[in-house]
């Protein structure tokens, strides 16, 4: 935190982000067709003129129903994609994106090999991995299975291992997308405990979840997105209530 010199942890300023609706069709014939016919791809606006500022040590929830732009917002924060317009700034040290656990996992490799690959993808060095390997395996409660191929694991074991690797990087900014329901109840408690540790250590947390109760424990502030626009931004109790009311009205009206 001291390294950031008064910069916010995350700053979004007038951010717009759109996607082409038909970006999937990209064969040569489509390219050629577009060259001869005037072609204006249909745009889908995922985020419209979003501005907010998150200070270091804040824990913020992003809520909103499917397609509201939550994931796009997280992906802009991790710099996986760039905004069309506006500025996205992220200051501070290491980021741990818990976006999709086990993104780099391969079923034919052993647990240990997958741990090393995933840790390297997250930016750990050989020395970091050597130092933390045992604690990663211990936390995931994998035991001797660590030297078996990943395809022999149960889904729960795999998720536990992935969560364990993803959080071992000692991040300054933790980005969480719907991963709190990892494994059985015992492990879910353990996961939450680890995330609470980050919170106590005053790390910045940005998180998306549909489970409002989890969010209330974890975050102090919420940003409510609807159709790519910020509906409300403030203390979590108030924003979640407003969101719930709006949902109910919508359900009654619909």
């Amino acid at each position: 935190m001291s390294t950031s010199n008064g910069y916010p942890a995350i700053l979004f300023q007038d951010v717009w982000k759109s996607f082409d609706r038909h970006a999937g069709q990209i064969l040569l014939r489509d390219r050629l067709r577009h060259m001869f016919h005037s072609h204006r791809p249909e745009k889908f606006h995922a985020l419209r003129d979003i501005s907010f500022r998150i200070e270091h040590g804040e824990s913020v929830a992003v809520i909103g129903h499917n397609g509201a732009g939550k994931s796009t917002l997280l992906n802009l924060t991790t710099k996986l994609c760039r905004p069309d317009r506006g500025v996205v700034e992220v200051h501070g040290g290491r980021i741990a994106p818990l976006l999709d656990l086990g993104a780099g996992f391969h079923p034919d490799l052993t647990g240990a090999e997958n741990v090393c690959i995933n840790a390297a993808l997250l930016g750990l060095s050989r020395r970091d991995v050597r130092k933390q390997f045992d604690s990663i395996v211990d936390f995931a409660e994998i035991g001797d299975f660590i030297n078996e191929p990943l395809r022999t694991y149960s889904t729960g074991m795999m998720m536990r291992l992935a969560f364990s690797v993803a959080t071992c990087v000692n991040p300054d900014l933790l980005i969480i997308d719907e991963v709190l329901g990892v494994g059985d109840l015992g492990f879910a408690v353990k996961c939450r405990e680890r995330i609470m540790q980050f919170r106590r250590a005053e790390k910045t947390i940005l998180c998306v979840s549909h489970s409002n109760d989890t969010l209330k424990d974890l975050c102090e502030r919420a940003i409510w997105l609807n159709k790519g626009e910020v509906m409300d931004d403030g203390p979590i109790q108030r924003v979640v209530e407003a969101y719930k009311n709006a949902m109910q009205e919508h359900a009654v009206a619909g």
Binding site: T78, K79, V90, R94, I95, H106, D108, L109, E113, C116, I117, A120, L121, L122, G123, L124, S125, R126, V129
Partner: peptide, 23 residues
């Protein structure tokens, strides 16, 4: 953004490809 260990990452990815192909 990504401040990791390039060499260690490349080494891991190379070994991954190699192991998957031959295991």
């Amino acid at each position: 953004m990504w401040r990791g260990d390039y060499l260690y990452l490349i080494q891991n990815l190379v070994m991954k490809d190699f192991r998957i192909r031959y295991r």
